[in-house]
């Protein structure tokens, strides 16, 4: 019995249109998350980090096809898993902390209903029992007057409060793995720090493994023990945070470190990451379009 909760091996994903497949979105991605650890997945916009998160959850857009490789989560193969089997795992063993707390809660449903539904579905709890559990979870994420918050609608809460609610909900069924997809990107800078601290605190208490997807190497350096750096759909560097911070091997990682803003440097000393993911992708897409045009 190994202590890994997530093993991604040689994952390839491609854009497809009809029977024709296009450029690789993910190329030979391998990644391991161990029990109870926080693993950082870092990369620029468009590098493919959210695609990895979506591939694990099985919510990739229809136009993206996993062409090769495997995603092993708690001994189950997630690639090609039947929908009915996947639904038993999602929410129960794997959960998600979304990027934008403002849109991730249903505006028409009360907070309480949106927190308890997942416990009632997977754990078969009664309304009353799930309600009590939701109260305890809200207390854990330091929301005062939890009873009243459960009766509120999302628009009555601030962005930071909503993200606290979503974090609490992610821990509701005591999952083995939580995917946090840029959990602070949509938040105010002053709130970001509190949310990260909260995430850390919750992880320590519950011992849940977390895959932290972010573009911010500074966040990973503070939060995670291990990390993977992704660039243009490929993992370019992987290992212990302490090793990589002191001796980054890949030029891209060094560039990412250089681009991380620091308070002890003047703002105009900002050095952007050289090269453009977007242009590379556009070139790939253009090639794909030409191939498709030739097909029709």
């Amino acid at each position: 019995m190994s202590n890994t909760v997530l093993t991604i091996a040689n994952l390839h994903a491609e854009l497809r249109a009809g029977r024709k497949t296009g450029p690789g979105i993910l190329r030979n991605v391998s990644l391991t998350v161990h029990q109870g650890e926080m693993h950082g997945l870092v990369g620029e916009s468009g590098a493919g980090k959210s695609m990895i998160a979506r591939a694990i959850l099985g919510i990739l857009p229809r136009s993206i096809l996993i062409s090769d490789g495997s995603i092993d989560c708690l001994g189950r193969q997630m690639v090609g898993l039947a929908d009915s089997d996947r639904r038993k795992i999602l929410g129960r063993d794997i959960s998600l902390i979304p990027q934008d707390p403002l849109t991730a809660l249903n505006p028409a449903r009360r907070i309480g209903a949106q927190m308890t539904d997942v416990m009632r579905l997977h754990l078969g709890w009664s309304r009353a029992r799930a309600h009590d559990a939701a109260l305890a979870l809200l207390n854990e994420v330091h929301i005062r007057d939890a009873e009243a918050v459960l009766r509120r609608y999302p628009h009555e809460l601030s962005g930071g409060m909503r993200q606290r609610v979503l974090i609490a909900t992610a821990f509701a069924c005591e999952p083995k793995l939580i995917i946090a997809d840029e959990p602070t990107t949509a938040l105010d800078v002053t709130v970001q720090k509190q949310i990260l601290r909260l995430l850390r605190e919750m992880q320590n208490r519950h011992g849940t493994a977390i895959l932290l997807v972010t573009h911010d190497l500074g966040v990973v350096a503070k939060m995670c023990r291990s990390l993977s750096v992704i660039h243009s759909g490929m993992i370019v560097e992987q290992g212990e945070v302490s090793d990589i911070v002191t001796r980054p091997e890949h030029a891209f990682t060094r560039a990412l470190f250089a681009a991380t803003p620091r308070y002890d440097r003047p703002a105009d000393a900002l050095s952007p990451v050289p090269g453009e993911v977007v242009r590379e992708l556009e070139e790939k897409a253009a090639t794909f379009d030409r191939a498709r045009a030739g097909l029709s």
């Binding site: 996947r86 999602l90 929410g91 998600l96 991730a104 249903n106 539904d117 997942v118 579905l121």
Partner: peptide, 13 residues
């Protein structure tokens, strides 16, 4: 919408 994705990720049919 994002809240629909969240419901899918919670395991609802």
């Amino acid at each position: 919408e994002d809240y629909v994705t969240m419901a899918r990720v919670k395991g609802f049919g």
